[in-house]
Write a protein that binds this DNA or RNA. Structure first.
Lengths: 223, 223
DNA sequence: GTCTATACCCTGATAGAC
DNA sequence: GTCTATCAGGGTATAGAC
């Protein structure tokens, strides 16, 4: 079924950018329609509700991330560590190019709708897992450059934490200090792991929540 | 001037929790008023607009973070590395206690209003800087347990990235896999840095964006 | 300082012609 | 598939008595 118009695509791509920049709740359907140069009739022809558009946007972003970030980064180099660093480099360029107005493609959206839209939250969680699998794949290819018995899955989640946190800081502070420092330190982490004899002792690396956290004196009030 | 009522405080604390859980835009003043058991007249007596309440909330959250997180974590231990890890432990407990419904106290809020509320964004950026100063202070106390010439400021920003990213992942995935892995890997990073001879070579640790990024093939479309 | 009542706009969504 | 016109409801904010 060849589509005759691209209105649906236009709605998705403009909504993606607006949600990304200003969030879901802050973006009205009117704004989307105007910017996509279409009208109410078309909008609701394709999407029964605004929430349905959101779901389509999430899928679209996942596609773009694949073809424009992960794909090129993997083509660029075969070195496992450089591959994940290339993903970060792509994020960095994106921050700069858009003057820090765009954060993580799904990160802030995920946080925003985490409570109100369980289905979307789950969808995004699945995407996070995909990326983690992917990055873990890089680390698997690293073979014995990494210490034996290291938790590659955990290392992938660690890298994703750094990326998301670094983007957030860059966006809030509107500079690259935290981003560059984070990438530099991750790079050093890889180097340290590669050093012979880097991993001679200890054996505690709780990746799965095997038990409840040890009690802490830190006590957050009910704010 | 002794205040006769605590209405103002009630508004701030309930708004803080609601903004934290569901975001700013998603939270209506009606909802805040109801939950704080007050009415429109009182609300606008204390806060000319909803935005003014937001600013008060940010300041309040900063206070709580100081007294309930950083303070206790510092009293708990004098070991510099354990201090930052104690902050993470406090965040972890908080995630669990609230079933992952609450993320970073200011992180997601910052992302949400980053574009629409420049003044608030700047205020939060200032708080981030404060925390970084604080954490850098820990690393300064670490003295020669850290390699000479290491970028302690960068290390602090790195730690904050990990914390923010780990909280985000935990909230989206609704489990602690990424959080625990991130903390474990950060702990290992500290251990590796402490190892004698961990830092014998290389000299490239760009913290300040000294130059433009190297060109990359990764190309994000204009979505 | 707190209450009730209400203004008024913008939002997501619908109706129906073309 | 796209248009115009419109609705119902909830949003922030105001008015004025107490």
């Amino acid at each position: 079924m060849p589509r005759r118009t691209n209105t649906r695509e236009r709605l998705i791509t403009t909504a993606a950018e607006l949600f990304w920049r200003q969030g879901y709740a802050q973006t009205g359907v009117n704004e989307i329609m105007q910017q996509a140069k279409t009208t109410s009739g078309s909008f609701y022809h394709f999407f029964p509700t605004k929430d349905d558009l959101l779901l389509a946007v999430v899928d679209h972003v996942a596609d773009i991330l694949e073809t424009d970030v992960f794909g090129p980064s993997e083509e660029r180099t075969t070195d496992p560590f450089e591959r994940i660093l290339a993903v970060m480099e792509a994020s960095r360029r994106h921050l700069v190019e858009h003057d820090f107005s765009l954060g993580s493609p799904l990160g802030s959206l995920a946080a925003e709708i985490s409570e109100s839209h369980p289905a979307v939250r789950q969808r995004i969680a699945g995407l996070f897992e995909q990326w983690i699998d992917r990055i873990r794949g890089y680390f698997s290819e690293a073979g014995n450059r990494l210490p034996a018995g290291i938790d590659r899955d955990g290392l992938a989640r660690f890298a994703l934490s750094i990326l998301e946190g670094a983007i957030l800081q860059a966006r809030v502070e509107r500079n690259l200090a935290a981003f560059d420092a984070s990438v530099a330190e991750l790079r050093r982490h890889f180097q340290l792991l590669e050093q012979p004899g880097a991993f001679e002792r200890r054996r505690e690396t709780p990746t799965q929540p095997s038990a409840q956290p040890e009690t802490t004196t830190a006590d957050w009030r009910a704010w």
